[in-house]
């Protein structure tokens, strides 16, 4: 039982530390933690697609963008409270993902990688060019109202912290349970050998479509939280670079491992902040750190065990 107990204690300790963090840290660092939390949402949702199902998706930012813009447009032009746009953002991103997935998901490995990069770029360029007359071009959309939760208007990083990390907690619970279910098992089987998975009776096409839509819809809902936090969004927040960062978080932490992916989010989103003292050399060190960490731990820092739970 102790093998199961130790991670539970570690998780509880981590959660407790997080809960008191906003009271101990400066506003600047709480804001950094808010960003880490948003990245954690993106990384956990990409982990479902990339880590569990093994679908090479390097365009996750596109679905994040669809969600964020849905929230921004609905809240600024129709006056819908921004947090109430969550279902709409999720649906919009999920629908877009389904549209992309139907023709594209039959592509294998690296072909899927470049196509998802391409989808990400097309979305960004469409936003810059204000393709639908709704997105404000390269200036983006501003004046997104502050989120209101149970009558409280959330303004400070400390207040947003609990909203964002609450969402992370829900995500960990939901995805952890999915991962431990027949759905997670089917995804990992597909990742290991798609032909054998189909031959074992798994409806691989359906499972791949489901996970791609679900992970993307989740990124769309993370987009709502991002729009609510920033109050201003513009295309440059949704470029290739964001997709790359989230991709790196999943693999650096350990594909398929929820604690690993959280660690990856902390490292990838947090390390450049810690390296701030290095001024302009910080990204140099960051790139080097990525290389070294992958060479030293090719399966990630906290990989999933073959036998164990999530």
């Amino acid at each position: 039982m102790s093998r199961r107990g130790a991670p539970a204690v570690a998780a509880a300790l981590f959660a407790a530390l997080l809960c008191i963090a906003p009271f101990l840290l400066s506003t600047y660092w709480v804001d950094v933690l808010d960003s880490v939390g948003l990245y954690a949402l993106l990384a956990l949702s990409l982990n479902l697609i990339l880590g569990e199902a093994g679908l090479y998706d390097m365009g996750h930012a596109a679905f994040f963008a669809v969600g964020a813009y849905t929230a921004a447009i609905l809240s600024t032009s129709l006056g819908i409270p921004v947090l109430l746009t969550l279902p709409a953002s999720g649906c919009a991103a999920g629908l877009f993902a389904a549209l992309v997935a139907l023709p594209v998901l039959r592509l294998r490995g690296d072909y899927l990688l470049i196509v998802t990069i391409g989808v990400g770029e097309i979305v960004r360029i469409a936003l810059v060019n204000d393709a639908f007359g709704l997105t404000g071009g390269s200036n983006g959309i501003f004046g997104i109202p502050r989120p209101v939760l149970l009558g409280w208007r959330l303004r400070t990083p400390e207040q947003l912290f609990f909203l964002i990390w609450g969402a992370v907690a829900v995500t960990v619970l939901v995805f952890g349970r999915l991962s431990a279910s027949r759905f997670g098992r089917a995804l990992r089987a597909i990742r290991d050998d798609e032909v054998a998975a189909e031959g074992s009776g798994i409806d691989t096409a359906r499972a791949k479509l489901t996970v791609f839509v679900l992970g993307s819809a989740w990124a769309g809902m993370a987009g709502t939280l991002f729009a609510a936090k920033m109050t201003v969004i513009s295309p440059e927040s949704f470029g290739f670079w964001e997709s790359v960062l989230v991709f790196a978080m999943v693999l650096l932490g350990g594909a398929g491992s929820i604690p690993g992916v959280l660690l990856g989010a902390f490292l990838v989103a947090g390390l450049p902040e810690l390296f701030r003292g290095l001024a302009s050399a910080r990204m140099l060190v960051f790139g080097l750190a990525l290389m070294v960490m992958m060479v030293v731990r090719p399966r990630g820092l906290w990989p999933r065990r073959a036998g164990g739970g999530p």
Binding site: R182, R185, A186, R188, A189, R191, D192, D193, V195, A196, A197, G199, S200, G201, I202, D203, A306, G307, G308
Partner: peptide, 19 residues
Amino acid sequence: RLFGGLSVLDNVLAGADAG
């Protein structure tokens, strides 16, 4: 063609998925 990253039992359970 096994699922090398899965446990032995999970391999068997994957085979039961259709049911």
